[in-house]
Design a protein around this nucleic acid. Structure first.
Lengths: 253, 253
DNA sequence: CACTAGATCTCGTGT
DNA sequence: ACACGAGGTCTAGTG
């Protein structure tokens, strides 16, 4: 990995390092005393203090304080970053057109300025949420109940997409609402909204909330709406490489 | 600001630097080739690559790739961080009990290891819909009360910026604190802080909290501090608030 | 481009 | 501690 890191550079040197980093499409990390203003989707001011400034090669721009996961100010990927020097003071600016917004950092003094050109081709493999639950239900419908048959996933209604639409052993329509986490009243309200789409349906339609657990409020609301609940924890298995599997077997199953 | 930064430390030295940083409650920044596993609310694997690892003094723990604002893996504030050395290989672990989860980073090689103890007391002042309220008050001051005259917006005091400073019909100074949402005790405390800036002022100064509603606690505190309250709903621009638009067209039916 | 919905959402705030 | 709502949400995926 190629990188450069300097301690206590003056304004001019900070300016040079940042410009080198920008031109090399590096990840730039600066520890500095700075103040920040933002104007765009909202407006904010942040007085002077010691912070970490990060500029990534995709244009992501963050200012981090010493607390919280989230940056106190930021600019999303693809924003335009540029450094400038006015009367010996360093300014860093991140901006974009749509929506129009601008982040400006005034750097009072720099403790460390550095940039890095690393190698990272790896993507994250994640499991344990709604998508995996959907797959599990389709692969093994009887975990919902004996005789359950899924028909559509992402079934479109005027009130949004139903996670899974199916039929039970008696042929009744069943609306499944999946949640990978403890479900609150909003999940029940959402399910109810889908149910309303079938209000003029001749036959009986069942609505089932599928989640690891529900809040007390949600439980009461389920009863009030005459909806059902099934406890299910999202599966945590990593799939074997899907692309490979599909290519290899060609979908012959 | 006190800090330490070293280039290309070996495993042992990286281990020492991280432990120093942890014991000093510093912000730790490491550039390293590493792999990551996570298990908890979900489960994930990330193969080897060059990344930035950040540990903040509140226990926030992040692994950043060279793209996107968000970390590829993380652990929230208050999680327990510890470093360990097994067979000459560095491991960094962040974990917490509730919910139970664990993030482990295996560090293959370190390009830079550093920690920082900065000073930062400043909080962010955000002004979004409040800006619209300010405009509304300036455009039409009598919605505050008959004879109200706004003088300054963003009036600077040692305790922060006063939203609107004005005078009433009798010439008394009036401090307005605007909140776009239901105001809690913090809003009242903030207003009180501004009022304190005028404690040696000869004449009477009024403080008014302007918000759509207040919590009961806030209402009590207002009384205790002899502050006033005016109910005002922030104007929302057409197109920015979809619900309003939908209500407008769909609600009349 | 816009639009949708999920997220290890995070973060504040109220109960 | 838990539940709920908002966010400059972000991010991936689809039309």
């Amino acid at each position: 990995m190629k990188f450069l890191s300097e301690k206590n550079p003056d304004s001019l040197r900070t300016f040079e390092i940042i410009n080198e980093g920008l031109s090399k499409k590096s990840v730039i990390v600066i520890m500095a005393c700075c103040s920040v203003t933002y104007e765009g989707r909202a407006r904010s001011k942040l007085g002077s203090g010691d912070r970490m400034i990060i500029i990534k090669s995709d244009g992501s721009f963050m200012v981090h304080q010493d607390r919280n996961l989230e940056p106190v100010n930021w600019q999303p990927p693809k924003s335009q970053c540029k450094a400038s020097l006015k009367d010996g003071v360093m300014y860093l600016e991140g901006s974009r057109r749509n929506p129009p917004e601008r982040l400006e950092v005034e750097i009072k003094s720099t403790y460390m300025a550095s940039y890095f050109n690393g190698e990272d081709s790896k993507g994250l493999e994640l499991t344990g949420y709604e998508e995996n639950m959907r797959e599990m239900v389709f692969d093994n419908p009887k975990i919902i109940e004996e005789g359950f048959r899924p028909i559509n996933r992402e079934y479109s209604t005027p009130n949004g997409f139903i996670d899974i639409l199916g039929k039970d052993i008696e042929g009744n329509l069943v609306v499944l609402e999946l949640k990978s986490r403890r479900a609150g009243i909003n999940a029940v309200k959402q399910l109810k909204k889908y149910m309303d789409c079938f209000s003029d349906h001749k036959e009986f339609v069942r609505g089932i909330l599928v989640a690891p657990s529900v809040t007390d409020d949600a439980s009461e609301l389920l009863e009030e709406y005459k909806l059902e609940y099934i406890s299910m924890v999202p599966p945590r298995e990593f799939g074997t490489d899907k692309n490979l599997t599909l290519d290899f077997f060609g979908g012959s199953k």
